[in-house]
């Protein structure tokens, strides 16, 4: 583990949790959290530096503190809180990453760089293979939104890795992160009382638990353990797959299937009244779904997630409370029906 760790994006829940966790590692001397706004949660005694990674000032921070491990977590699909729009998010994602990488390139102490990326880089299209590996080239590259940001960010990171071969670069492509305090667009969607879905499509989804996300970031930030390698690109997802219809039944939220064009309008309407982020790529995910292969994560990175996709979702469902059609009461109704029927027939019991 490097002695001085710099973490970007600590104003987010996940960033804050990661800082608190890594603070407790014995090998870490100093943790510096960076974000453009001060976090509302405490950082467990870590230093917080209010710095915007979009400005060259970040280079000075790196030079002055002698950072040797950089964890870049400030790559997000949605603005933090209600401030800022899509434009500022994109700027933080792309320009911020460029500035940060430029600063890293000038900082001779930096030995390790971890990027929190997303499986959105694969897009979702019906003509893609069912399961993406790290080397799959998507049939249609994402044309905009967060997915395109991620594609560009990863491009810059590859360029940086070429220019600074002495730095170990680890790109973690996370599937949808869910957990009690996750603030991802998908978690917001799952909190809607009634879900608009796309008629005639039942996407396959994969989730990562927050705890697993923190754990895998720690593995990537530390020196590689025996027999593993923690530089390169890895898909991070829980085992197994859930269909959207399954998640709605397990969470007890009814769905309203809409025709594909109508969903786009409904999404725009929902977004404009600020209920949820229903971006085009979110709709694509909820139409075609996305599943990634995690063999590299297990065998090369040596990480085994504690939670499967289904368990992650169960945890999330517990934290959200019952929906309009709780599965328990539906099951009870069926059981009651089953209790009534044999009494009527009465022969084989």
């Amino acid at each position: 583990m490097g002695k001085v760790v710099l973490v970007t994006g600590v104003a987010r829940q996940l960033g804050g949790r990661f800082v608190r966790r890594i603070q407790r590692d014995p090998d870490v001397d100093r943790v510096i959290g960076v974000d453009a706004v001060p976090p509302e949660h405490h950082l467990g005694g870590a230093e917080f530096l209010k710095a915007d990674i979009r400005h060259p000032a970040i280079a000075r921070v790196l030079a002055e503190t002698g950072v040797d491990t950089v964890i870049h977590m400030d790559i997000n699909g949605t603005p933090l809180g209600k401030r800022g729009g899509r434009a500022s998010v994109k700027e933080t994602n792309v320009i911020g990453t460029m500035q940060l990488l430029g600063a890293c390139q000038k900082a001779p102490n930096v030995q390790r760089l971890v990027i929190k990326s997303s499986t959105s880089v694969y897009g979702s299209a019906p003509r893609d293979p069912a399961v993406f590996t790290e080397t799959t080239t998507p049939k249609s590259l994402p044309s905009g939104g967060f997915a395109k940001d991620v594609v560009e960010v990863e491009g810059y990171v590859r360029g940086f890795a070429r220019r600074r071969p002495d730095v170990a670069v680890c790109v973690l492509r996370f599937a949808n992160i869910l957990g009690p305090c996750a603030d991802s667009p998908l978690a917001e969607y799952f909190s809607l009382p009634v879900w608009p879905t796309v008629l005639g499509y039942d996407p396959r989804l994969q989730f990562v638990h927050e705890d697993d996300a923190i754990e895998v970031l720690r593995i990537a930030a530390a020196a590689p353990r025996r027999g593993t390698l923690n530089s390169g690109t890895f898909n991070i997802a829980g085992d197994g797959v859930l269909l959207l219809s399954q998640t709605s039944r397990r969470l007890g939220r009814p769905t309203v299937p809409l025709l594909l064009p109508t969903v786009t309008w409904a999404g725009t309407a929902l977004r404009s009244i600020g209920i949820t982020d229903f971006s085009p790529e979110q709709i694509r995910l909820l139409t075609h779904g996305r599943v990634v292969e995690t063999t590299q994560m297990r065998e090369t990175l040596g990480f085994r997630p504690k939670y499967t996709t289904a368990e992650t979702f169960a945890e999330f469902a517990r934290s959200r409370g019952p929906g309009l059609l709780p599965p328990e009461s539906l099951a009870r109704t069926v059981d009651r029906l089953a209790g009534v029927l044999p009494a009527r027939g009465g022969l084989s019991q």
Binding site: A130, T247, S248, R250, P327, A331, D335
Partner: peptide
């Protein structure tokens, strides 16, 4: 049939990576 219905409406079934 009711046991099947119970599993289906509560989402208590498995699908593989391919759906």
């Amino acid at each position: 049939g009711l046991a099947f219905l119970r599993r289906r409406i509560t989402g208590d079934y498995e699908v593989d990576d391919f759906g």
